[in-house]
Design a protein around this nucleic acid. Structure first.
Lengths: 236, 236
DNA sequence: ACAAAAGTGTTTGGAGTACACCCATGA
DNA sequence: TCATGGGTGTACTCCAAACACTTTTGT
């Protein structure tokens, strides 16, 4: 129990990390292997951690993402805390936590964040003792997840859909640095669960001052190449 | 320390309770008296409590409001958690907490809620050891508040302004059961920090299906009496 | 030549905004 | 009779939505 003065075992943060692969909205999950009665049990969990004793909540969430991806400056937004007394009801979860933290674990309230990252970056995932992968957001409800992470993802998805509606420039956190209007439109449609008209969409983005046209076109596509654009944060 | 198995001293809930007096948006604060070196020190705090060990966060917030007002079925919405390690930096706050809870208090993360209540109800405030009063939301930044409650109120105000914009029917949580369009308009303007046109406002509310006209007019006003309306939740 | 996506304008309906006068009531 | 707010209609502007064809490029 040498971690006792370093960690606060009553509060954690969890991050629902979203990415876009060009077609679907994805969420980043960590593979978890549990040795249970000499049987390996595999499931998945959100990236997260209990907080350090001298750490603010936002700092803890940043630390989790930095330890996992090596990246800083990721868009992060706290959206909801989950504190049902039954969220640590599954002994499998408690045993796993006590093994990885070396702390006695009782009830934990978790503060949940959403993060948006560019899936194209060559990210080396450095997950605790296992690997991390992207999963289709529409598939997670069929998967086996730790704690109440299914509900957390569900609420995170609602939150980010709303947030991307209110602040459309956040869409660019999910796109590569250079992108075509088509990519932007497909992302927009995936997020809003809609199918938007190509011409009307062009008109709409034409009046976004922070969208700047480049003197380049995409390459390697089996059809007419689309013009590339970039996002200019200064004009937000 | 007999509360040790009953309360969880690491997590609290705080409620930013809003009301509307017909003119201004108000927030409910509890008077706090602290005996400090034989001098009485007075300030104010949000209604709140550390959570019970077997209690969900939403339940804790409901309990706080019920204990304070005797009311149930109050609109309550979690909006943000505050967990800076320095929020319990003021010894005055820690001493006060330890005296009222009879528990050893270290760092506390608080989960903040907004509540909307009808200020006209004859409410008997049963605050811990003192009284509760309504204060103008524009005046709280000049007042002396416990912990980081000023920031919590500020964020709560932002949240509820946004929420009342997205879900305008929540405005009716703040009005008496029967109200005139004028009252609704003044509330709308206070919340949105705007001055709306009387005729355009009439047109807008005319297409709210959940607003139903009554066969009554207001009484006791020194001018033409306005027609009364009520809110029909079923048509939301 | 063909397949596949890029790019481009016009019309229409609905929503929001601006604006001024008469009406009902209590004092 | 006067002061106070209640209640009403029209014109204009702007944004969202519907809708089809030509262009470019790789295979």
């Amino acid at each position: 129990m040498s971690n006792e003065n370093l960690y606060n075992p009553h509060i954690s943060v969890d991050c629902v990390v979203f990415g876009f692969d060009g077609e679907k909205l994805k969420v980043l999950l960590i593979e978890r292997s549990i040795n249970e009665q000499n049987e390996l049990y595999n499931d998945k969990k959100l990236p997260g951690s209990i907080i350090l004793n001298d750490e603010d909540l936002d700092e803890a969430a940043s630390r989790v993402l930095n330890e996992l991806t090596g990246l800083n400056n990721i868009y992060l937004s706290q959206f909801k805390s989950f504190g049902s007394p039954t969220r640590t009801a599954n002994p499998r979860d408690v045993h796993w936590l006590e093994r990885t933290t070396q702390l006695k674990i009782g009830r934990i309230v978790t503060v949940a964040y959403v993060a948006l990252i560019k899936i194209d970056r060559k990210i080396v995932f450095d997950a605790e003792d296992s690997s991390a992968n992207w999963y289709d957001v529409n598939e997670v409800n069929t998967m086996s997840l730790a704690f109440d992470h299914i509900q957390i993802i569900e609420k995170g998805l609602e939150h980010i859909r709303h947030q991307l509606d209110v602040e459309p420039h956040l869409l660019f956190e999910l796109l590569p640095k250079k992108f075509t209007i088509s990519q932007l439109r497909i992302l927009h449609d995936v997020v809003h669960q809609a199918r938007s008209d190509v011409r009307n969409f062009q008109k709409k983005v034409a009046q976004m001052p922070y969208l700047v046209m480049l003197d380049e076109v995409e390459e390697g596509v089996p059809h007419r190449a689309g013009r590339l654009y970039k996002f200019d944060k200064k004009r937000t």
